[in-house]
Write a protein that binds this DNA or RNA. Structure first.
Length: 223
DNA sequence: GCGACAG
DNA sequence: ATCTTGTCGC
């Protein structure tokens, strides 16, 4: 699918777009409980920040093997501003998504969804634009407070921002730093954590983002 | 006012 | 994100 979107030039414009999209986020669904296909998205940057490569890799959800993928190269669409991260990477990621042969049942983003100062992290934004179920798995926090989860794999603690629960701090590997899981669009938090654990049988990060990471790095090196 | 701040 | 050495552990 080809997605039409207007990309901001200024911070004020970007904030206005987030305000407009935020009410369109669907937080009702449990999301796909037994998806057959799950896609991972990631972006790699050149040393001088002049170029980037965006990759989308679709995995068979059961075997975690690659069944489709796409990569695009280009330039960062926006400066890096915490909270406006999506405007930097989404144009390239959408271009990559457009080249996919199959439509994934779930998109796993490298970053946050609801766990965002205005509740519109990259995962939510991508969900609204594509209409597909999305979730975010971040390596480091952006907002919120939490208690360290127990040491075993599967242990978690709520990620809160004031009174709201915006995500979950989830341990995907015994004794290893946890990840930050939050819903994006048409996805429930319990399910997002279940899917994250299913995607991390061995490593800290989901196999989807690991595959996407290696692919965009390779593409960047060649460009 | 002073930090913190997805990738 | 990216630049980096050695080091600890399976």
């Amino acid at each position: 699918m080809k997605i039409e979107a207007h990309w901001p030039t200024t911070v004020a414009e970007a904030l206005a777009i987030q305000d407009r999209l935020r009410p369109l986020v669907d937080l009702t669904g449990p999301g796909p409980t037994e998806p057959e296909t799950i896609a991972g998205l990631d972006v790699a940057y050149a040393d001088d920040d002049s170029r980037l490569a965006a990759a989308v890799v679709v995995l068979d959800a059961r075997t975690l093997t690659v069944i489709d993928s796409a990569v695009t190269t280009g330039r960062p669409a926006f400066d890096y501003v915490p909270g406006l991260f999506a405007f930097r990477e989404l144009p390239a990621l959408l271009a990559a998504l457009d080249q996919l042969r199959v439509v994934p049942e779930l998109l796993v983003c490298d970053g946050h969804g609801l766990a965002h100062p205005r509740r519109l992290g990259l995962a939510c934004h991508l969900g609204v634009l594509t209409g597909l179920p999305t979730m975010g798995v971040g390596k480091t926090p952006l907002i919120g407070t939490w208690e360290p989860p127990a040491g075993h794999r599967g242990a978690w603690s709520p990620l809160r921002d004031g009174d709201e629960t915006v995500g979950r701090v989830l341990r995907t590997r015994e004794g290893v730093k946890p990840v930050f899981v939050s819903v994006g669009h048409r996805m429930g938090l319990d399910n997002a954590c279940a899917r994250t654990l299913a995607l991390t049988p061995r490593y800290r990060l989901p196999e989807t983002t690991r595959q996407a990471d290696r692919m965009c790095r390779a593409a960047l090196a060649k460009s």
